[in-house]
Design a binder for these strands. Sequence first.
DNA 1: GATGAATGAGATTTCATTCAT
DNA 2: AATGAATGAAATCTCATTCAT
Lengths: 216, 216, 216, 216
Amino acid sequence: MSEPIKMIDEMFDFDEGLTEKQKRILAAAIESFAEKGYAATSTSEIAKKAGVAEGTIFRHYKSKKELLLTIVAPMMAKLVAPFVIKDLNKVLNQEYENFEEFLKAMIENRAKFLKNNMPLFQILMQEIPFQPELKEQFKEHIGAKVIERFRTVVEHYQGKGQIIELPPFSIIRFTVSAIFGLLATRYLLAPDADWDDEEEIQRTVQLLMHGISVGR
Amino acid sequence: MSEPIKMIDEMFDFDEGLTEKQKRILAAAIESFAEKGYAATSTSEIAKKAGVAEGTIFRHYKSKKELLLTIVAPMMAKLVAPFVIKDLNKVLNQEYENFEEFLKAMIENRAKFLKNNMPLFQILMQEIPFQPELKEQFKEHIGAKVIERFRTVVEHYQGKGQIIELPPFSIIRFTVSAIFGLLATRYLLAPDADWDDEEEIQRTVQLLMHGISVGR
Amino acid sequence: MSEPIKMIDEMFDFDEGLTEKQKRILAAAIESFAEKGYAATSTSEIAKKAGVAEGTIFRHYKSKKELLLTIVAPMMAKLVAPFVIKDLNKVLNQEYENFEEFLKAMIENRAKFLKNNMPLFQILMQEIPFQPELKEQFKEHIGAKVIERFRTVVEHYQGKGQIIELPPFSIIRFTVSAIFGLLATRYLLAPDADWDDEEEIQRTVQLLMHGISVGR
Amino acid sequence: MSEPIKMIDEMFDFDEGLTEKQKRILAAAIESFAEKGYAATSTSEIAKKAGVAEGTIFRHYKSKKELLLTIVAPMMAKLVAPFVIKDLNKVLNQEYENFEEFLKAMIENRAKFLKNNMPLFQILMQEIPFQPELKEQFKEHIGAKVIERFRTVVEHYQGKGQIIELPPFSIIRFTVSAIFGLLATRYLLAPDADWDDEEEIQRTVQLLMHGISVGR
DNA sequence: GATGAATGAGATTTCATTCAT
DNA sequence: AATGAATGAAATCTCATTCAT
């Protein structure tokens, strides 16, 4: 249990006002939601796992739904944080010589992040389709901001003649799919398999850059 | 409502013994499960939507869970059908001259299939993580069979010198990610966007084959 | 318990579709609401008293509030029924020679009605201030219709020179107060006292007509 | 909020030891109890409205019930105060020449009182049927004392030949009904209507004295 | 086969009250 | 005195499932 609580601190660090019990509630909720899904997790179960009275949950969160949103909303923000202006400037300011390096850095960064926050990410993925609030936030954050920023990057490297001249949106979709597919396989589908993470990331970048056909 | 029922017929055609009411129950369940999730859908809701009495559902399906499995199990089979021996032989028997053509054909085929069965696919995706029976079936079908077959294909074209010499599993993951990403974006994330399906598939295949870097 | 159930039949006679259990629920709810008030009565208490499972209540009434309204709404209608056009015409068609006779008949009629429906009347009185829906209905029925009709009667007898020429509304208020005071005292405040009902109604009519001062 | 607090001071003046917070609690409780009823008002609601912590309420009042009684008990005493010996003697000592003047004075006095204490009066009316302690106090004060005193007055004026020779209890009931009906209509049913209070009281007294029939 | 009333276990939520600070 | 986190009992409500008709 001490592990999730540490993660809680990272994730909710801005909320310094968290009681010890509140943290235990969050940790328990995250664990259960990830394991059985939001709808199939009962608040009494969470209370028991957290070692608090059921009423205590509702003293801090008006409803079970609010508990879910409290858990999942900051995750969404952090997930796309590297795409906010500040971080992004590193790219545009030539911090990365070419798109390949940029890709590799980004994948490594997000892989580390997901590794530390798998349960939260699972909950997010599972619940987005069913919670209109989340869908809304997702569209706003990902759809509007991230894609926009990503496009800037792609166009930047297209301008430098490093990336093929296809519609940026197609390139983004293709790139994100490869990354997402890598991470999902690594952490969700086959977390127990033998992985050489470095190597697999390297291969993915290579495939992204040059495709699967035998080059010439 | 008549649309889903037609789909029901396609999907459950082998079960010719389906009553009109049974079809209505299946259609209603599919619609609700896809929209709100299995756990958040009540049987009484399904009954109302199907226009039958609550008890009638349980006359045909021993439990709510059985109803879910009835719905989702054939979907899984059909989803991977093209990878069973018979169809696959077409590939190996040179039906497709090169991997690129094979890819294109496969994507088009599966895209059509998903288009006709989106709600079922959604339910499958949502519930696999939570239903051990499904997880089991999925591993067996996809993990065991499909990957195995796909590997055969990859190795086949590697042997012909058309595909790069990386571990087949990495190539499969990369390829499947691109396809899955395309279809998910097309049918789940942005079903209402303006799409030139032909074109987008063409681009995806091109990217898969040659990557995003400016080739030479 | 058989007594309230008979009353239920009278009150809800139009709803022929009432299950035996539904009737028992209504009877139990009426008894408890009257005795302890709506807010202080729990649904589990009602279920126990009615001898049904708690869920059964909610199968028939979506919420506790709906149960209350189901009980109380028809009461309101019946309470003011004698003032609907048809009955009222008897008055205007000289069925009653003078206002005194009209008054006496009306009081006797409503007294009998209340006697048979005391608990319902109590609930109505108690809950009107707190339930906006009831307040609304009350205003519509009493405020709009009854007062209007009553005014017609008063003006009718004013025209015949039998009633003093004061504003009808003041006369109505005064008359209704006297009647309401009589009935409330008789059935709510001192139901166990020794009453000669005939006589007391007679006295009330006399006081209404001639006041308390020594006439001349 | 300052208004109710002023009223608190009037009502609870004898309890000089009231903290600012205590006053705020009382004011909040009165407001909520009157509006939603005792049972439907939560202590946390009162605390919020009063701007104090939940625990603070229980520091001053052992329980929610005690808070109610604290509020309502003095109201009952004040409501019937004019009927205690001292005030009553004014009547018997010919302070009022005739019953009519007495009536008018009394109505005016009680009307003013109610006007200043409507919420308290409402609470009293609503809760008497459900709180045995209140019922008891009410019977003792009203039933025993007030009626007794009122009977003395009535018999006094009957002796002087000013009031008709009917059973005093009937006369009291009739008179009180008229007064209560006037005040309830004025302050509860239609507080927003256009009222000429003077005039309406005058009319009520007239009707009480001479009835509604055309006198001779 | 079909119905829908009934169930009872359990889910979410409320709330008066206590208590450590 | 005051706070407000915590409690746990109880309240309202939901729902998969059964069963008599």
